[in-house]
Design a protein around this nucleic acid. Structure first.
Length: 994
RNA sequence: GCUCCCGUGGCGGAAUUGGUAGACGCAGCUGACUUAAAAUCAGCCGGCAUUGCCUUGUGGGUUCGAGUCCCACCGGGAGUACCA
């Protein structure tokens, strides 16, 4: 170990320092030495049960409990990492190392989510292929992570852009495309509803077991249909299908977006461009059919409540009823189906509202009915003219515009009337943009007596209000308002004025009067069904997942179209479909406000690629490739399974390997759903990646490719590392590293800050290049070494909470490691100084209590408190007069090694051990030395501490009470206490006599 | 607006089931060592105060006892928003 010349910072070594002091320079040498050894010896290779990855370097899979710890893999950005990024990676690494020491077979690896917009945009600017920059970025990020000492099995690393990986992404798409959802099929796990191969559906059509939608009553059999007709029928069943419904078109980005990628303001999450609703042909995934299962199975997995709640809200399951109203139109009687969650209020419906895109609006009368009030007409001469103008206006409105209207209702009378099936009342039908086409049926019955929005609308257009529910006296609703102006919206109440006799409407007589709301809903649903005018239904906020993008840097679809436009799947044997070279990588973008523009995909620019001759079983024919690419989420939807064996060329994942690592009950902590044991990542993926992954996984489960219905058993969201940033008085960011802290301003209680002698303002938030407050891991290695960096990040606070980075505090971790080093190694000579004598009883007590406590903290993923307890033990050893006992410092080193692995390996080796400590058994506490000899019992009078007693932990409660009463006898003044509570051995609480 | 989470010293943060509030670290202070400084080691370190009182955002409540449970409010953060 050589002397270091650098003396610029205190921990980087200086001439006067002892030669064998643990400083930054020595830390760097130790760290790189051990990182090389781990690599050379394959220390972190995990053993599969079979195949190419069976080699676990002497530790086989058989007989060892599998543990799969995983991070949300990174996008390899060109910007590199800052200290905020690896918090989660360090946490999983600590957990992985701990589980290895418990004797488990730990699968821990890191891949790269490498398709994406930044690389594409860089390619657009430079003309360089995105693969080149992406691969350079991956190499750089791999180096940065490696230097942290993360214990990955490097044989299992891959990137989503690797052709072998793309192949399986396309293979999964093919399986989804070739599947339909059979809601009646009973799965192996007993649940109802399952994805099934599309062949099973075709067989039902061929056998005549199932009517062919759209061809009922034509007498046509399946074989009689043209290929185009067959394709159209199947498209309506496939789980990946071509949709012709409204999608989010973003001209500024030149692509369409999923609902999840559009902000509440109606703009693109990326780039903040306006988004318009357009009807375009696009790929969609039928995620809505899984809505109920995606909610239901949340109960079976160990995820933060917050994320479960976000997914439940996003899916938005609501139970209600659909009701059919008859509408008289110029072309005859039409059916209007509405959706309501409160069918009990049908008697209070006084009008109906349909969304501006609703089909009914194409059947409005040619003139306004006699007596139509002026403000119902909106100034238009005919209903048709009004409908068209209103629809166009609503379409161009962003969500922001709607918010700006401040809840003000707009709308227009359609000239049509609907017959309330329960009362026979004639209700005017309006159109208004507060009713959304995409939810329910796009039409509502309006009950102004029970709904604030309907009420606002009724007031504006002078429509009547009928109350059918009376609030409960103790409901908290203001009863004085009842029958007054405001609607009563509470769900609790008693139904009144809700009865008909059979002569007034379809069906039998019905009375809801006097029932609770819940009972009324049940009764009215039964009535609707028996009268054939409606039924109870379930509705979802979740929409199908828009799955195609007009971008270059993504996976091409394994789909070609024949000359009739019928899509055909490319056979698995021809996968992967590689991206073609194109003259220009950018999608055609438009004026962000140009809603009428049409997407143009970059892949369409290579005609040689688009037009291909293939033999798909009917001899060589000309086909045209699909020119869309998959969204960024495709690769991250299933990558966890690929860690199991990225070398497998035969399967996405082999069943036996899946069962071993991820199958149901593969270890004691995982339930019947199976899945990754621990998945750590940011909460920002709560509804995007995590919902899509669960969806794909359930399809693959239904189709029998994997054995459990959930991908991730335990989810953990790490907090964010925040930082201070500084601006000058013009508001420009100035480098945080060059800020000087001045004296505290007495008026604010805050210090003053300056940069280059000028005043600076401090703000608190994220770390970012533009904020000029970045600290990189490389800065930390340079100043302290990777172990100190790891120690600091793990000790700053609870892993799941956000907290500020404070440069100044890092030094505490360095001092701890130095003290530990000095407890083992003589700083001047480099000799090992531990003594071989048995530790004294006090040391043994502390050691074994520490082992017990630290084990609990590690199990609970609380490295911060584990570290605090290890520091206490180390501080105790430092103070020992007769040298540090080996029997105490070795367990300390083992327990610290998950957090600071390099220095611990070095000390372990210097203590004479030939093998890495990575698989040394985790220390166990000797119960002879746990617990305490005496505890402090507290004597309280009315909750206040009045005396303390040193007593045995096993003291008899009666004896303790006696001692306590003696100790405070003076204060009780000889009176008998009113009450004494004894919780031996810790508390005696006395309530004195008055 | 609705839903959820969080408020503890100068700072980051500890406190099984309600049971001695402030572990551990940073900063600060004192001492030892040193010509001196750094480093290291030993000690002090919530506030007021004469022995005791006050103190976990504020105000109430439950309890022998509340940072922890309940109610209301204040402040901060996150999600979501005309979903019928």
């Amino acid at each position: 170990m050589s002397e270091n010349e650098n003396n610029t910072t205190s921990y980087n070594g200086r001439a006067s320092e002892p030669r064998f002091r643990y400083n930054a320079a020595m830390a760097q040498q130790i760290e790189q030495k051990w990182q090389k050894q781990w690599d050379d010896k394959g220390t972190f290779w995990a053993a599969n049960v079979s195949g190419d990855l069976k080699d676990g370097k002497g530790r086989n899979a058989e007989g060892r409990t599998p543990y799969f710890a995983m991070d949300m893999f990174p996008y390899p950005s060109g910007k590199g990492l800052h200290v905020g990024h690896p918090l989660g990676y360090l946490a999983t690494d600590v957990v992985s190392r701990y589980h290895r020491m418990k004797g488990e077979n730990v699968l821990h690896a890191m891949g790269y989510d490498a398709f994406g917009l930044p690389a594409e945009q860089y390619a657009v600017q430079t003309g360089q292929h995105p693969r080149i920059t992406t691969e350079a970025n991956i190499a750089n990020m791999r180096r940065q992570l490696h230097r942290m000492g993360l214990s990955f099995d490097d044989r299992r690393s891959f990137a989503t852009i690797d052709p072998e990986y793309v192949r399986w992404t396309q293979w999964i798409f093919s399986r989804i495309y070739d599947a339909w959802y059979d809601p009646d099929f009973v799965r192996e796990d007993g649940g109802k509803g399952s994805a099934r191969p599309i062949d099973t559906l075709i067989a039902q059509f061929q056998a005549g077991e199932r009517a062919i939608p759209g061809f009922e009553g034509t007498g046509k059999r399946w074989a009689d249909l043209t290929s185009v007709e067959q394709a159209d029928v199947l498209n309506d069943f496939r789980l990946a299908y071509i949709s012709k419904s409204p999608v989010n078109w973003c001209p500024g980005l030149g692509t369409v977006l999923a609902n999840e990628e559009v902000t509440a303001e109606g703009r693109s999450e990326r780039g903040n461009f306006p988004v318009f609703q357009r009807e375009l042909r696009q790929w969609s995934m039928r995620i809505t059919v899984y809505g109920h299962r995606l909610i239901e199975d949340l109960d079976k997995i160990d995820w933060p409540q917050k994320v479960k709640l976000m997914q439940r809200n996003w899916i938005g399951e609501s139970h209600g009823a659909s009701v059919h109203f008859e509408v008289d139109t110029p072309g005859g009687t039409r059916d209007l189906e509405i959706y309501t969650t409160r069918p009990d209020t049908l008697f209070g419906a006084t009008f109906a509202v349909v969304s501006p895109e609703h089909d009914l609006l194409r059947h409005v009368p040619s003139a306004w009915p006699d007596g139509t009030p002026e403000d119902w007409r909106g100034g238009y001469d005919t209903p048709a003219e009004g409908m068209e103008a209103y629809r166009v206006a609503a379409e161009s409105k962003t969500a922001q515009d709607r918010v700006a209207e401040g809840g003000q209702k707009t709308g227009l009378f359609t000239g049509l009337y609907a017959i309330n099936p329960i009362t026979g009342a004639k209700l005017p039908i309006f159109t208004a943009d507060y009713v959304l086409m995409g939810y329910g049926t796009g039409a509502i019955m309006a009950v102004p007596g029970g709904d604030q929005r309907d009420y606002d609308f009724a007031v504006k257009f002078g429509l009547p209000v009928i109350y059918t529910v009376e609030p409960l006296p103790d409901s908290g609703d203001d009863l004085s308002d009842y029958e007054g102006r405001a609607p009563f919206v509470s769900h609790d109440g008693i139904v009144v004025n809700s009865s008909i006799d059979a002569t007034k409407a379809k069906g039998d007589a019905l009375s809801l009067d006097g029932l609770s709301v819940d009972a009324a809903i049940e009764k009215v649903n039964e009535w609707l069904e028996s009268a054939g005018v409606g039924k109870g239904t379930v509705s979802y906020r979740l929409r199908d997942w828009l799955f195609s993008r007009q971008r270059y840097w993504g996976e091409p679809f394994p789909i070609v179209y024949d000359e009739d436009g019928v899509p055909h799947l490319i056979p698995d044997s021809m996968l992967p479909i590689d991206l073609p070279d194109v003259p220009d990588y950018s999608p055609k973008t438009f004026d962000p406000q140009d809603a009428e523009s049409d997407p143009e995909a970059p892949l369409s620019r290579n005609e040689d690629w688009v037009k291909v001759t293939l033999d798909l079983g009917e001899g060589p024919k000309t086909y045209f490739r699909d020119t869309n690419t998959m969204p960024n989420w495709a690769g991250s939807c299933w990558y966890y399974m690929r860690y199991i064996d990225p070398t497998d060329t035969e399967h996405m994942v082999e069943r036996d390997e899946y069962d071993y690592w991820m199958g149901p009950d593969h270890n004691a902590s995982v339930g019947p759903t199976g899945g990754v044991d621990l998945y750590v990542g940011g909460v920002e993926h709560a509804v995007l990646h995590l919902l899509y992954s669960r969806f794909w996984h359930k399809i693959l489960f239904d189709l029998g490719y994997v054995d459990g219905p959930e991908p991730f058993h335990k989810l953990f969201n790490q907090g964010m590392i925040q930082a201070y940033a500084y601006t000058d008085d013009r508001g420009q960011y100035v480098p945080a590293a060059e800020i000087e802290e001045g004296p505290v301003d007495p008026s604010t209680g805050e210090p003053t800050y300056s940069w280059n002698g000028r005043h600076a303002n401090r703000e608190f938030g994220k770390m970012g290049k533009s904020l000029k407050n970045i600290i990189t891991p490389d800065d930390m290695y340079e100043r302290y070494g990777a172990d100190t960096f790891r120690l600091y990040e793990m000790s700053m606070g609870p892993l799941d909470e956000s907290r500020p980075w404070n440069d100044r505090n890092v030094v505490g971790g360095m001092r701890f490691l130095q003290r530990l080093w000095r407890n083992v190694v003589d700083e001047r000579t480099g000799e090992v100084t531990v003594c071989e004598a048995e530790p004294d009883t006090k040391t043994l007590k502390l050691l074994n209590n520490t082992i017990a406590d630290v084990t609990v903290e590690m199990e609970a993923m609380r490295p911060n408190t584990a570290i605090a307890k290890l520091i206490v033990l180390n501080n105790h050893l430092t103070g020992l007069k007769d040298g540090v006992p080996r029997a105490a410092v070795e367990p300390l080193i083992l327990m610290l090694s998950p957090v600071a692995p390099h220095i611990c390996e070095e000390l372990w080796s210097r203590l004479g051990h030939g093998e890495s400590l990575a698989y040394q058994p985790w220390p166990t506490a000797d119960e002879r030395y746990t617990g305490e000899d005496t505890v402090t019992a507290v004597v309280q009078i009315k909750g206040k501490v009045r005396a303390k007693l040193e007593v045995s932990p096993s003291i008899d409660p009666d004896q303790l009470q006696k001692m306590a009463l003696e100790a405070v006898a003076e204060r009780l003044g000889g009176k008998e206490p009113r009450k004494v509570i004894v919780k031996a051995p810790k508390i005696v609480s006395i309530v004195p006599a008055e």
